[in-house]
Design a protein around this nucleic acid. Structure first.
Lengths: 190, 190
DNA sequence: TCTATTTATTAATCTTGATTCATTTTTTGG
DNA sequence: CCAAAAAATGAATCAAGATTAATAAATAGA
């Protein structure tokens, strides 16, 4: 649903009907099946994705050949691999649907054109980027101030609903430890 | 020097002389002595800081009563404690000068007013925020894909000049390990 | 220039969470 | 509804980096 995006934008800036039309004319809606990929290694990331329904994950394969998840995106969050998007260099990340999802995508190029036509959108994305940065910094704070076990309990208490939506091993990966260690702390809790 | 800031902004967007004057009328230049604070716990962070000369650090005191540095800012970087800035809640961070520094500061409120008068600035800050987010994500990638020792060697090879500017124990803190461990790996290298 | 304070080093011991490998439980697709 | 795959658990051993404590070196300020 295209509405989801413009409704979200309207929480931050005013949009005229003509703006809404302009936006809707350059984005596209994708139904993404669980486990389907929006980005794979050796591709250049050229799009940004807004999740209108479902859940995406961003991950890469580390030296030990394990998946390392660096981000999730659920409803009303943007996801992209900015390292590649900004540099036009090949990415070593995957973007994959964790659930059957509905995603609104826009190419970097179209977005640049859109900024020319609807300059107020710069403001929306400034705010979105600032929030993303703040969240990312908060995450670094947690990494450096809590043990893995504390971080697991903290995350669980902050997002009890979210942890029901994803397999445990994905949460373990996101939090930076092994599924075995996760089982150990969960067993302790009882 | 006010010039440093507007010169930097002009790398991303066009500024008319009137824009430059408007900007310069709402920012202020501060000479900050080494070890002086721009923010301390129990204050609300209400300003953003652009480093025109010198170096700032952002840190908090963790549960073990050690300083945990989460960011440095050198020439041409912005620093603020966005968690507090966005929410107007009390911060538990310090922003402190690591060297005698020159900082251009602008209050959040003045910046909001400035956005009304010079809307193209939204674009500048959107780009700055996006880069900051990208760097922050890259850092999370490194945290989760390298050992502490690897991260130290990687950081040293990327920023050989920077590590000369700061005490070792600050780099150890930023990288998330103890000064003792740092000494150990440095001793190994010989 | 001397003394304080700050910063860096070394070594022994300890802890958290990784690794390995086997087993069990749950989920999925045909 | 069943087989195969995916996900979760459990236990034994191991390793990276923390902790503690003492000392040494470098820096700054008076």
């Amino acid at each position: 649903m295209l509405d989801n995006l413009t409704t979200h934008i309207k929480k931050f800036i005013e949009l005229h009907d003509t703006d809404v039309e302009l936006i809707n004319s350059v984005v596209s809606v994708k139904q993404v099946k669980k486990k389907a990929f929006l980005l794979q290694p050796d591709q250049v990331c050229r799009e940004l994705y807004y999740v209108s329904k479902g859940c995406l994950r961003l991950y890469f394969i580390n030296k030990k050949l394990n998946e390392q998840i660096t981000q999730f995106a659920i409803e009303n969050w943007w996801m992209s691999e900015y390292g590649s998007l900004e540099s036009n260099k090949i990415s070593n990340y995957y973007i994959q649907a964790v659930e059957n999802s509905e995603v609104i995508s826009i190419s970097k190029l179209k977005l640049e054109e859109l900024f020319e036509k609807v300059p107020r959108l710069e403001r929306y994305f400034r705010i979105v980027q600032q929030r993303a940065f703040t969240a990312s910094q908060k995450r670094i704070e947690y990494i450096y101030s809590m043990s893995d076990e504390e971080r697991y309990r903290h995350f669980s208490s902050l997002f009890p609903d979210f942890i029901q939506r994803i397999p445990q091993y994905m949460l373990a990966s996101y939090l930076g430890f092994t599924p075995q260690f996760m089982s150990k702390i969960r067993a302790k809790k009882v």
